[in-house]
């Protein structure tokens, strides 16, 4: 059973308070009608299944009801970080040891300027 740090409650809580909601950072296409059937099918049904670092969407279902993301190692089940909606992960497949702080800040800045897409 996981021990999950809710980035909104700022506490470690038991897994039974949370629901997993699948792969994180799947943004809904801005104009669904412009998608081909295949593109729409990809958005709906196709997900990654990596060995190693994986970004997942979770919700603190019986806590604050907030959605947030978890970076988890699918081999060791270690949770490397949890972060709020709209934030970017520090640990990625390309940076398994964590990105440098400046890069994280720059990415956060870039994301906050996009409108609408916060996933």
């Amino acid at each position: 059973m996981f021990h999950i740090y809710c980035p909104y409650c700022e506490e470690l809580r038991e897994e039974e308070e949370f629901h997993p909601k699948g792969q994180a950072h799947i943004a809904r296409p801005v104009d669904p009608e412009a998608c081909s059937d295949e593109e729409w099918g990809d958005y709906l049904f196709f997900r990654d299944n990596p060995r190693g670092i994986h970004h997942e969407l979770w919700v603190h279902a019986v806590g604050c009801r907030k959605f947030f993301n978890i970076t988890r190692n699918t081999v060791s089940y270690e949770i490397l970080e949890t972060y709020r909606m709209g934030e970017q992960p520090r640990f990625t497949a390309g940076h398994p040891e964590g990105k440098p702080a400046e890069q994280v800040a720059a990415e956060a800045e870039a994301v906050s300027r996009q409108e609408g897409v916060k996933a």
Binding site: H19, A27, L57, V59, R65, F67, M85, G116, K118, A119
Partner: peptide, 14 residues
């Protein structure tokens, strides 16, 4: 309720 929150928090926070 969770479904509504999902859409509001992840797609339409505006």
């Amino acid at each position: 309720l969770e479904w509504l929150e999902l859409w509001h928090q992840t797609e339409w926070p505006e």
